[in-house]
């Protein structure tokens, strides 16, 4: 019969219409209640009919990995050095940024003129940013993260859409709050909840303490002990001393490397100038 297909299709439309309101009739308008379960069911795979989100009264909370614009992680207020940047101004985020919307000014020590691992200024032009998340993915210090705050509409872009360091900085607890799982994973990888440099330093300190303790323990060791035992004690001490020396050496080497790098950069610039 001609028109049967149309009627069948209209049946589907009617079912959709009924499905949308079936819930209301069966459960007494539960979709307007604040219960979490209802919301999860309505936004999940079991939803029937239209499942409108009543924004702004209710909002689909975004998942952990959601990325909007980036922000910088700083220490919390109750931290021993509060407000300190996690960023070491290494520049990887600005290099890996596809549309090149990140500007970083590396901090320098005014006394020596040497670079210090802190950004003096940090800018992100969110009119260029493409929310790709590479900066967060490739940051070796977990210092830049993708924010979940998408409510950023403004009436004037020139004054608000270049985010400076002040605007970008958010405490670590904020990151913990919006992405607990990811933050935990990253902390596991770093070896603690602190910034990776702090962890390294602590480890170094602990090593040094262990060394000192071992040193203290070595002379205290009773003299008439068998030579074999004495050797056994002496060996780790020597090792610890070596470790400490190598750490110092490393620092020296690091400074040298940095200086070399600076010189190379200057040369490069000079060459470019020609």
């Amino acid at each position: 019969m001609y028109g049967l297909g149309i009627l069948k299709g209209l049946g589907v439309t009617i079912r959709h219409f009924i499905d949308t309101y079936k819930d209301d009739v069966l459960y007494g308008f539960r979709k307007y209640s604040k219960s979490q379960d209802n919301f999860a069911v309505r936004q999940g795979t079991q939803a029937t009919g239209a499942y409108t989100v009543q924004y702004p009264e209710e909002k689909v909370a975004v998942p952990e990995r959601f990325r909007f614009t980036p922000f910088l992680v700083v220490n919390d207020a109750d931290h021993e050095s509060p407000g300190e940047d996690w960023c070491t101004s290494c520049g990887i985020c600005s290099k890996v940024c596809p549309p090149q919307c990140i500007w970083i000014v590396r901090g320098t020590d005014p006394a020596t003129g040497r670079p210090v691992p802190q950004p003096e200024a940090f800018f992100i032009d969110i009119d260029i940013c493409m929310n790709c998340g590479f900066c967060a993915e490739f940051c070796p210090f977990d210092a830049i993260k993708m924010d979940h705050d998408y409510e950023m509409a403004s009436y004037d872009r020139t004054s608000v859409n270049i985010h400076d360091k002040e605007r970008l900085s958010k405490p670590f607890s904020y990151w913990m709050k919006i992405a607990p799982t990811t933050a935990t994973e990253e902390a596991d990888a770093r070896g603690g909840w602190e910034h990776s440099d702090v962890i390294k330093e602590k480890k170094k300190k602990a090593d040094a303490e262990a060394k000192a303790a071992a040193k203290a323990a070595a002379p205290a060791a009773p003299a008439p002990v068998a030579a074999a035992v004495g050797e056994a004690v002496a060996a780790p001490v020597a090792e610890a001393v070596a470790v400490a020396e190598s750490a110092e050496d490393e620092e020296k080497k690091k400074a040298e490397r940095l200086a070399k790098r600076e010189a190379a950069l200057a040369r490069k610039k000079a060459n470019k100038g020609d």
Partner: peptide, 29 residues
């Protein structure tokens, strides 16, 4: 580089792309 070079813009909604909720926020603005 920006529609505001030619037309007067009332509201800017940042994001690439703004999610529907971000757009709704802009419409409310």
């Amino acid at each position: 580089s920006g529609i505001d070079k030619y037309l007067p813009v009332d509201v800017y909604v940042p994001g690439c792309p703004p999610t529907p909720q971000a757009l709704l926020y802009g419409l409310i603005a």
